[in-house]
Amino acid sequence: MLELDLPWWQFPLRATLVYVALQVLVRLSGRRTVGQFTPFELLVVMLLSESASNGLAG
């Protein structure tokens, strides 16, 4: 139950990589609120959040 499937160092590395990638994407998209998103942009943000959670969970 307490045994990890992956080495311990991969979890902080994944978290760091996902955080940096999301920060870059946020900077590229500009500073807009959710109310200013088009439906397509909102869908992309939702897909990014899902992929980020999968990447962090391993």
Results as ranks from 00 to 15, higher is better:
residue 7 P to T: 08
residue 28 L to V: 03
residue 33 T to L: 09
residue 11 F to C: 01
residue 14 R to K: 07
residue 18 V to W: 01
residue 8 W to G: 11
residue 13 L to F: 10
residue 32 R to S: 14
residue 46 M to C: 03
residue 14 R to G: 01
residue 18 V to P: 00
residue 13 L to R: 15
residue 30 G to T: 02
residue 23 Q to K: 15
residue 33 T to N: 10
residue 7 P to Q: 10
residue 23 Q to T: 12
residue 7 P to D: 05
residue 6 L to G: 01
residue 36 Q to N: 03
residue 23 Q to S: 14
residue 34 V to K: 13
residue 19 Y to Q: 12
residue 10 Q to G: 06
residue 37 F to H: 06
residue 9 W to L: 09
residue 44 V to E: 00
residue 4 L to F: 08
residue 43 L to M: 09
residue 16 T to F: 15
residue 33 T to P: 02
residue 54 N to S: 14
residue 23 Q to M: 13
residue 2 L to Y: 12
residue 43 L to N: 07
residue 52 A to K: 01
residue 29 S to H: 09
residue 19 Y to D: 14
residue 21 A to Q: 09
residue 35 G to Q: 04
residue 55 G to K: 09
residue 19 Y to H: 15
residue 50 E to D: 08
residue 2 L to G: 15
residue 54 N to F: 09
residue 51 S to Q: 10
residue 31 R to M: 13
residue 23 Q to A: 09
residue 51 S to F: 15
residue 24 V to S: 01
residue 52 A to H: 00
residue 50 E to W: 11
residue 13 L to Q: 12
residue 20 V to K: 06
residue 32 R to T: 04
residue 7 P to M: 07
residue 30 G to D: 03
residue 36 Q to L: 07
residue 10 Q to R: 12
residue 1 M to G: 15
residue 53 S to E: 14
residue 40 F to M: 09
residue 23 Q to Y: 05
residue 11 F to E: 02
residue 14 R to P: 00
residue 52 A to F: 04
residue 27 R to I: 10
residue 2 L to E: 12
residue 44 V to L: 02
residue 30 G to E: 06
residue 35 G to N: 07
residue 32 R to V: 04
residue 25 L to S: 11
residue 28 L to Q: 09
residue 4 L to W: 08
residue 35 G to V: 05
residue 41 E to S: 01
residue 53 S to L: 11
residue 16 T to H: 10
residue 34 V to H: 02
residue 40 F to W: 15
residue 1 M to K: 11
residue 2 L to T: 14
residue 9 W to V: 13
residue 42 L to C: 07
residue 30 G to Q: 04
residue 22 L to M: 13
residue 35 G to A: 03
residue 33 T to G: 13
residue 3 E to L: 14
residue 52 A to P: 00
residue 13 L to K: 12
residue 3 E to T: 14
residue 15 A to Y: 12
residue 18 V to G: 03
residue 16 T to Y: 10
residue 40 F to I: 09
residue 34 V to W: 13
residue 34 V to L: 07
residue 57 A to E: 06
residue 52 A to L: 03
residue 47 L to R: 02
residue 24 V to C: 05
residue 7 P to A: 08
residue 19 Y to F: 14
residue 28 L to E: 06
residue 46 M to P: 04
residue 41 E to L: 00
residue 10 Q to F: 15
residue 36 Q to K: 02
residue 41 E to D: 03
residue 41 E to C: 04
residue 53 S to Y: 06
residue 58 G to M: 03
residue 27 R to T: 14
residue 46 M to Q: 07
residue 48 L to R: 01
residue 17 L to K: 07
residue 21 A to E: 06
residue 47 L to K: 01
residue 2 L to Q: 15
residue 20 V to Q: 09
residue 3 E to R: 14
residue 33 T to V: 11
residue 54 N to H: 13
